[in-house]
Design a protein around this nucleic acid. Structure first.
Length: 474
DNA sequence: ATAGGGTTAG
């Protein structure tokens, strides 16, 4: 309508004849502005306008604003806005809980749920799936049990969505028995219930049981096929392909996830030929080189020995994720192309992609390979000071190597004592090994206090020792 | 006039 009127300039002069009258800005207009938002800066301006026009108590507007904040990853701002609302309704609490989880703040999600309950806000059938997902993301099984109890008390536990997420929670937290119990007691099961069961059994490594459930399952779809294929990919890669052929006979079309699982199987077999076949299959069947498929291809090519192909895929990818950059940097490092790895990192920084701990594992490994202590120290310092990344045990292994080789044993001990996160059992044996090799007595004592040998299996010890000795040779 | 579950890569 506005566009129409502006076509008649004679009747409607371009300059505003009433300079003191403001254009109307009500709920409709605010909603429209929010709809047109393209970035966070813009969003903040619209929020300011909403406040100025006294619209900050409009529930619909604020919810729309909150979900935009969430999609921009600005949960700090969303928190601020949320706490300005007077008497937020259940819907709004749910939205916040979900948004925190999506943005990797599952602990905040759980805190907010606690606040909600303590304020007497009644949860609804949507609240439970959101908060249970937060529990799995935070690996908070005890909290999960409390939520489960509350779901029973309020009667929402009868909801299929609630049961499916609960099942998933127990599987992800290693309580296969609880997960199975829920599945067995379910009166109605959806495709999702069956698939959650299959992937749950796949994840503690009960492949035979998963297979049994799969064969009994009615209405198998791509997701259920892929869950099982993915299970076989790691331990029985040939069987993963057998299933893939069977799936095609069943006329179920694979998706990006299926191909990624099959690429994992190729990597496991070390079969460049089969990996190339999957790549070819993807191209012939019109698959886009998305971030998951692309990154899996880079990983496969690199691990199957063709760094050139890995690089080609990387260069072709239109959209890259953090994992894509990490995979390329690590691949280059492993193949001894340290300089190229560092130049890819520089390119990543120029593109304003935030590196994470894994990126620096790749870079520090390059330093270990080239035995460049100064560069290693520089990256280690830079990582914390510039990006606020706290070291993980893998970083410390690299630094330990570098210091040990330079004979700077004191630095090693300082490093280990300053270790911020609890080193995991896969890493400790490696650290212990290098401390033995280089005779760092203090560190050895320190580590002995931390290491519970009963939980370390012999294979992982062997693997890590081999890794360290490879670095020794390099 | 808006929200939910299962499979993927470093």
């Amino acid at each position: 309508m506005v566009a129409c009127l502006s076509c008649t300039p004679d009747a409607f002069p371009r300059t505003n004849p009433f300079p003191f009258s403001k254009p109307k800005f009500g709920s409709q207009e605010a909603l429209l502005s929010l709809h047109k938002c393209t970035n966070f800066k813009h969003l903040k301006r619209v929020y300011a306008k909403i406040i100025r026009h006294g619209l900050s108590h409009d529930q619909l507007l604020i919810r729309r604003l909150l979900s935009l904040c969430s999609s921009y990853g600005k949960m700090d701002f969303a928190t601020l806005v949320f706490h300005q609302i007077q008497g937020p309704l259940t819907f709004t609490w749910n939205l916040m809980i979900r948004s925190y989880t999506i943005n990797d703040c599952s602990k905040q999600a759980l805190l907010l749920f606690n606040l909600m309950i303590s304020q007497g806000i009644p949860p609804d059938k949507f609240t439970f799936p959101f908060v249970i997902k937060a529990c799995s993301a935070a690996s908070a099984i005890e909290m999960g049990k409390v939520v489960h109890g509350l779901a029973i008390k309020t009667g929402f536990v009868g909801d299929l969505f609630v049961l499916n997420t609960l099942m998933d929670l127990y599987f992800k937290c290693g309580r296969v028995d609880f997960g199975c119990k829920i599945f067995e007691k379910m009166r109605v099961r959806s495709v999702v219930s069956w698939t959650t069961m299959i992937s749950g059994l796949v994840s503690c490594d009960e492949l035979d049981a998963a297979r049994g459930v799969f064969e009994k399952m009615p209405g198998k779809n791509v997701v259920s096929w892929t869950a099982l294929i993915n299970g076989y990919a790691r331990n029985q890669p040939e069987e993963a392909f057998e299933l893939f052929w069977r799936m095609q006979l069943d006329n179920v079309r694979p998706n990006e996830f299926t191909l990624v699982s099959l690429l994992k199987a190729c990597t496991e077999m070390g079969s460049l030929k089969l990996g190339r076949w999957i790549h070819d299959f993807a191209l012939k069947n019109g698959f886009k080189l998305g971030i998951f498929l692309g990154t899996a291809l880079i990983d496969m090519y690199s691990k199957c020995g063709s760094l050139e192909d890995a690089r080609k895929v990387f260069d072709k990818m239109q959209v890259k994720s953090l994992a894509t950059w990490n995979s390329m940097i690590t691949s280059l490092g492993v193949h001894g192309c340290g300089e190229e790895a560092i130049s890819v990192f520089a390119e990543m920084e120029r593109g304003n992609v935030q590196p994470d701990a894994i990126t620096f594992v790749g870079l520090l490994c390059v330093c270990v390979q080239t035995n460049n202590l100064e560069e290693g120290q520089r990256y280690f310092k830079y990582m914390g000071e510039h990006y606020g990344i706290t070291p993980i045990p893998e970083h410390l292994i690299c630094m330990t190597e570098l210091y040990s080789r330079a004979g700077m044993l004191d630095e090693d001990c300082k490093l280990v004592n300053a270790m911020p996160s609890e080193p995991n059992d896969n890493i400790l044996p490696a650290l212990l090994h290098s401390s033995k090799v280089y005779g760092i007595v203090n560190m050895e004592k320190f580590l002995h206090g931390k290491l519970d040998f009963s939980t370390v299996d012999a294979n992982s010890l062997q693997r890590n020792w081999l890794q360290v000795s490879k670095w020794d040779a390099g």
